[in-house]
């Protein structure tokens, strides 16, 4: 097993492209090290991307923020302007692992791990975030929503690395929120999760909405029927009941040791309902 620490994205991509064996890209390492320890993978080459210029930076861009792929959850949580703009995205990322893990874990790593239960991903998809991906032919942009393709699988090729994630500017009267269900209060993996991103009209009705569920299908699920239920309405009981039903209908979960399909289906709708109320309040709405 070899370890490389390139200083440019081009160098990193070159290392990956030239390696015939098993490779792993290391950012925070909070998934890669677990895989190594469990013996589920024995890479021939580990490429640590933390030394690549810009990958540890949060940079304002076009009213939003570009977040380097090696920025940790703790750094996100300490960035006041980012937290003010996208509180739901940051709270999702900050739920990963423990305080110690937060010092290492990254959003990009959480995305590239390909887990359907990834806590950072529903919020990013709800936010219409994009990822910049460096490959042999240079950089490309890709919607975060298009990156997960199945459990453990992503659209990032083996000779590519995600270098940053871009969270766009957003209109006034916007808010987002993320909730997950775990049997404990922390140190766990989502059994079901929901992210909601809302923009309100001046009259307090919902003008735009994105509702995304996690851990209830092979990839995160964008539930357009749930968004449709919200748009034009306030989150009153009837609207929320429609949203909840739409979310449960969109679930395609599995039974496993973490929860039954029935449980996930039921709880995903509940979480979407509760996240909607938080996002609505953050957008300045009042019922």
């Amino acid at each position: 097993m070899r370890y490389a620490r390139p200083e440019t994205a081009t160098e990193a991509v070159g290392l990956l492209a030239n390696e015939a064996g098993v490779t792993r890209v290391l950012a925070g390492g909070t998934d890669v090290l677990v895989q190594l320890r469990a013996g589920s993978v024995t890479p021939d080459l580990i490429v640590d991307i933390k030394r690549i210029a810009g990958l540890r930076a949060i940079t304002p861009e076009a009213g939003g923020f570009r977040i380097g792929a090696a920025v940790s959850g703790a750094e996100l949580g300490e960035h006041a302007a980012l937290c003010a703009l996208w509180p739901g995205v940051v709270e999702g990322c900050n739920l990963i692992g423990s305080t110690q893990v937060q010092g290492r874990a990254t959003m990009a790593g959480n995305l590239c791990n390909g887990s359907p239960a990834a806590d950072a991903v529903p919020g990013l998809v709800a936010a219409e975030a994009t990822a910049r991906i460096e490959g042999p032919t240079g950089p490309r942009e890709c919607a975060v929503a298009d990156i997960p393709t199945g459990p453990g699988k992503t659209a990032v090729q083996r000779d590519e690395i995600v270098t940053s994630i871009f969270l766009p500017a957003r209109p006034a009267r916007s808010g987002d929120a993320y909730l997950r269900f775990i049997p404990r209060t922390e140190m766990d993996i989502a059994v079901a999760s929901a992210a909601v991103n809302l923009t309100l009209a001046t009259d307090g009705t919902i003008a735009a909405a994105r509702v995304v569920l996690g851990a209830v299908a092979p990839t995160v699920v964008l539930v357009t029927e749930a968004a449709t239920a919200l748009i034009g309405n306030r989150p009153d009981a009837a609207t929320l009941a429609t949203l909840q039903a739409a979310c449960s209908a969109a679930c395609n979960p599995i039974d496993d040791k973490r929860g039954t399909a029935e449980f996930r289906t039921q709880v995903a709708g509940v979480l979407a309902k509760r996240a909607t109320l938080i996002a609505y309040a953050r957008a300045g709405g009042s019922l």
């Binding site: 049997p183 404990r184 209060t185 922390e186 140190m187 766990d188 993996i189 040791k257 973490r258």
Partner: peptide
């Protein structure tokens, strides 16, 4: 045995 670890064998954490 499907849960031989503290992730899925859930002892309480302090915040519980």
């Amino acid at each position: 045995l499907l849960n031989p670890g503290f992730l899925d064998y859930r002892v309480p954490v302090a915040s519980d």
